[in-house]
Design a protein around this nucleic acid. Structure first.
Lengths: 174, 174
DNA sequence: TTGATGTTTCTGTATTGACAGAAACTAATG
DNA sequence: CATTAGTTTCTGTCAATACAGAAACATCAA
């Protein structure tokens, strides 16, 4: 599969973005490719299109599966595993946010709670205790809010976002 | 300055977290340290406390300054520059989100817009064009929403978050 | 059961980024 | 203006990660 200039630019840029956010470049590129392709692709074709080693693709696919971002599917008359991602950008967005939250946000909350419950806490100055507590509270609030937002359907979520800062008008008269 | 066990745990964990999100470990550690310390510290004391090279601290401080996360201050009777960060976790949160957005989110929007305006776009399948468009739209919506949320004061923002999914009740009767 | 096709794991190399230590530089003080 | 205290930049080393290529493994069809 040969990429047109725009698709190429998209895939390459997505790879760079991924890097900046701690995602392996090849992993992001593969996902971008499958998203644009919009149809299942076998691993060897992915490797060829992106010009990376077959084994690299294999490992990256495993990673994407762990992130629930791609599914394995089969094509009639083809023995090979094919891989596909959702073409619904909202669904992808929510999957990414939810996975990241689970593996890189919630664990921090656990650590902070742990700190708050530790016997060692009394050794710290009151101000330090307060700051840890405030950090925990902010993160918990964000976490609970995030969970609820993720449950809303895209259309509602979009409405909420469109509302933007006007939301405070709905808030006050209460 | 010697760190108590809890402070140490906090600082180390913050460093790990940073790494996962593409922030240099020392940079995150220094920021965590200054946050907990709650008072200005000179570079050499930071280096000693975290047990890293003086030069490493110097570079990391520069990075934190670029992120608007720390300020240089001076202490009476001390020639050295001291560095301090806000102890308001909300302010920190907003600074980080806003800086990240500016340098790693908005540029992607620019690239996507560019793609949409490119003459090459017609070479792509209609479905590809649509997906790029949808991606751009989602990111623009998020960006605009983020800008507005960042302008709200912490208390309001907290109320919005507390409201959570109940927000859709305010939305429907409209 | 054997060859063909496809997948996964392993091993070594290369690249990147982090970091220490030294050297160079700058500014303040007497 | 030289000495001291402090900061920044530079250079080389180290560690982590990404990656290619090969080998091992699995599955299917004849």
């Amino acid at each position: 599969m040969k990429l047109n200039p725009i698709a190429q630019r998209f895939v390459l840029h997505w790879g760079e973005m991924g890097s900046k956010w701690g995602v392996n470049r090849t992993v992001s590129q593969i996902h971008a490719l499958l998203y644009l392709a919009g149809k299942p692709m076998p691993a060897d074709e992915i490797a060829e299109t992106l010009d990376v080693a077959r084994s690299n693709v294999s490992n990256s696919i495993k990673e994407l599966q762990n992130w629930n971002l791609i599914q394995m599917v089969h094509v009639m008359g083809d023995r090979r595993d094919h891989f596909a991602t959702s073409t619904d950008v909202w669904e992808l967005f929510r999957t990414v946010v939810s996975e990241r939250k689970e593996r890189e946000f919630d664990p921090t909350i656990v650590v902070l709670r742990d700190c708050m419950n530790s016997a060692d806490l009394s050794k710290e100055e009151a101000a330090v205790q307060r700051r840890i507590k405030e950090t925990l509270e902010l993160m918990q609030a964000l976490s609970a809010w995030g969970d609820q937002m993720l449950k809303l359907d895209p259309a509602t979520l979009m409405k909420v976002m469109k509302l933007g800062a006007k939301i405070q008008n709905l808030l006050l008269p209460k």
